[in-house]
Design a protein around this nucleic acid. Sequence first.
DNA 1: AAGTGGTCTAGACCACTAT
DNA 2: TAGTGGTCTAGACCACTTC
Lengths: 243, 243
Amino acid sequence: MITRSPSLTDQVKAHLKERIVSGAFEEGRIPSETELATELGVSRTTIRDALSRLENEGSIYRKQGAGTFVNEPGLQIKSRLEEMWSYEEVLRDHGYTPSVRVVAVTSEPASQPLAADLGIEPGEQLLVVEKVFLEDDLPVALTYNRIPARLVTGKIAKAEGALPLYDLLDRHCDRQLSYYLSEIIPVALPTHEATELGVPRRTPALSFEEIGFDQNNDPVAQSTSFFRDDLLRFRLIRRKAGA
Amino acid sequence: MITRSPSLTDQVKAHLKERIVSGAFEEGRIPSETELATELGVSRTTIRDALSRLENEGSIYRKQGAGTFVNEPGLQIKSRLEEMWSYEEVLRDHGYTPSVRVVAVTSEPASQPLAADLGIEPGEQLLVVEKVFLEDDLPVALTYNRIPARLVTGKIAKAEGALPLYDLLDRHCDRQLSYYLSEIIPVALPTHEATELGVPRRTPALSFEEIGFDQNNDPVAQSTSFFRDDLLRFRLIRRKAGA
DNA sequence: AAGTGGTCTAGACCACTAT
DNA sequence: TAGTGGTCTAGACCACTTC
């Protein structure tokens, strides 16, 4: 319990999360911060950091002067929108055993708006990877990942397209994906996307338009994704900005 | 600068945010935490708290060993999904001058699933407020707020329906709305909603299905909302869960 | 080697809730 | 009034980037 890396805070958070989901706290009451600090042999600050994160993700709530409690409704959220990372993970969180099918690995010139998003010249070549995520044989999501070709070192085999974007960028571009800036758009599925997802065309669906940034805050990829609402639904917690 | 309430951290955060958006930091480089602490006369911890929040909302980014920098792309986000509170505010953030039209204040019995969400018995009466948010004369959003009638003290005039849900609950139920648990759903707008929003029926749109919880973590309201995607688009930042 | 952000501690005092 | 979470301090040490 006293090893470095993962950080103490992370360990405390994981430990508490485990006790929370296993229902170890009677009546949903979590011991006071001072108690936890003594029990786990860390400072109250560390406990508070861990609790703040758990509160943020909706697992607990705190009432000044009263105590800290398990937040049952918040525990129902399997994957929070702001913390989604790879779609495989999201599907696993939903209890699926996901697989990936690479539809196509192609190349195309960047359109004007795309070039602006990626900070490159219009017409520069983009590597495009089209993937479908399935649970068993049921398609759940379809994504297009577009990466400026000049960032890519070496050739990318079609099989490698199955890698999560993070790993692909890490291996072939030596860049670490740091975050996405995402836009959520409602669409009626076009013919191609509907076919790949196995639903009638014009089915209402969510679409994400995203730009991925690397560790230096430079744009490295643009992604467009479509989801089957009947199989995958997104949830989040909305709070007042100040909190 | 040394008054209590708002907290020191909030004051520091607001101060830094102001300097960031006004472009006061050359080349996007923000002074070191130690410098800021000395300059503002607070502890480094306070500075770090403020910076962490700014980082979380995308205004800055930090690189260990290197420094703290302004995050230009992040500054473009007007309203982050997780921090949306009242729709009037959202519209103001988008540069609109919003107004509200109360379509109807009615009453209906709770359906089975709704009752489960709100922790009441099926068939219990709900107060339903239907509102349209407009910028000038253009409808941007339509919402239904449903509140268990037995929570409401006193009669609610139609004009009062225009109040933000937060204020309505505060005045007539003596409860403070603490957070929403939201589901994002793609829809083809039904006839009534399409008409109120002034678009063709079956237009693709985003819909939120939400449950609002009060300061004691009890459910107090259920809301359904529809948005005109051409006038209001939602953005967010997606990060790895651990970060 | 110098400077930056990341983690952690120990302790003080305040605001609020319960009883 | 006792106990809880909320805020803030001062300082130590570590990991990392930069030169």
